[in-house]
Every structure is written in C-alpha cells, then in structure tokens.
Design a protein around this nucleic acid. Sequence first.
DNA 1: TTCGATGTTCGTTGAACATCGAACAAGCTA
DNA 2: TAGCTTGTTCGATGTTCAACGAACATCGAA
Lengths: 114, 114
Amino acid sequence: MRKAHHPATEDVALPEIMGALSDPLRIGLVRVLADGGERGWGELRVPVAKSTLSHHVRVLRDAGVIRTRQEGTRCFVRLRREDLELRFPGLIEAVLAAAHTDGVGNGIGLVPGA
Amino acid sequence: MRKAHHPATEDVALPEIMGALSDPLRIGLVRVLADGGERGWGELRVPVAKSTLSHHVRVLRDAGVIRTRQEGTRCFVRLRREDLELRFPGLIEAVLAAAHTDGVGNGIGLVPGA
DNA sequence: TTCGATGTTCGTTGAACATCGAACAAGCTA
DNA sequence: TAGCTTGTTCGATGTTCAACGAACATCGAA
C-alpha cells in the first residue's frame, strides 16, 4: 500500500474528470459518496472483483474526483466536492443530477449493514 | 455518405456524453459550436487528418452531442444544446465554462476566412 | 461524362482500458 | 511470531480508442 497520489486542486484537468466519470461503475461510486460522508472501502458494494474496484478507485483518485485516506490497513474514501466545485463550478452537481434522473450507477451501493 | 444516425433526445446516455467530452479535441469542437450556429465541416480547423476529424465528429454525433446535416456533398454541424439542456440540465453549460477557464480545446478553431 | 471537392469508410497500428485471479505488502490480533 | 484482514499491484486477456493514409462514394461543375 504505497502512499496514494492526489492531484492538487489546480492540477485537476477537465478531460481527465470527464473520462473518469464516463464509466457507470465510477459514476455509481460518486453517487454513493455524494452526501459528502466518508465511506470505508469495504463498505462499497460493487459487482466486480476487488482488484477491479481498486482500479476504479484509483482512476477516480488520479483524476481528482475522490480522496482516499489510509487508517491502518483500512482505506476510507470521500468525494472532493468542494475542490471540484471550486475548479469547475456546477459540473459535479450537474453530473450527479443527471446520473440520478437516469439511474446511472444504480447497481452500486453500500453493504447491507453500513 | 450513408445517412448518419442521431440518437433521440431520450436515448442520449450520460456515460456516452461524458466519454465524448473527455477528449480535448472534441471539447474544442463543442466550444467552436457553442454559439449555437451551424458550421461547415470544412470550416473546422483541427490539427489532425480529415479521417480523424470524421471519427471525432462521429463520436460526438453518436453520443448525441452534435447534429450533422448533409447538403450536397457538404456537411454542416451544430450543437444539440436544447436537447442536452432538456436531458441533462446545466451539464453542457458547466462543461463549456470549465473548458473556457481552463483553455481546453484552444487549438481548435475555424479556418481564417470563416 | 469527366473531373474535382468533400467527407466517409477501411485496414492497420500502438496505446489505453476493464477485467480477473494470484501474489504481495502492511498492519492488527491472537 | 503466526495468522488474519484489507487493499494494492502484477500479469494476462480481450476490448476499445485515436490516429493515419488510402480507397471509396457522392454531388456539383466544367
């Protein structure tokens, strides 16, 4: 578990953000984190192998969409909402609204007892 | 020049839109069309081969971002702004604003005498 | 009808991506 | 220390994507 790299707010780039949000699974993850709360990696319920989830989390992190935090062996995830709002006003809100009305990422959620 | 397929407004999907707008060249094209006007294919000045431009135009069209119209051998392009606004309110505006402040797609423009 | 202009399509190539299982690293816990 | 838990990384596979030049199709003009 090497220390993860998070781009600075000013280094977040639009094409990368758009690319990161072009996958239904990743959109679903962002929706799960939309309330601003921090979630445990293990809480995330996703219909793919854990290595695949790790990959998607990394894509979102590298693009600057989410932030991950290590605590012991556990990993916590949260949406970089303020940063994104500063950088690209209205964008994340519009995407979340669109995803909601369209049901994109509905298959993604939290484990039952979370 | 087979007749091009344009998705109906209700069939436009968020991930496809996001994917279509994840490429700087395509973002640049959208910016060129942002004033709502119709532009001739040949007016577009893009630093790629025409076959590559054709590819990008097709990606945008298939995603529902732009509409193309045939007139003789010429092709005219315009942004489907109203449709997008109906489908995903605020999204295209936010992307255009972000692209503008970031200078994404600045290399794309119109031929000098257009 | 022949020629030129305008895009589209084809075939190819190298890069990027999504996915999986296996192996690994790091930190708790017994 | 030994073992368990939690994610990450690796290696492999198949798919998609951006890019190019060449060939093609279509229409207007000569």
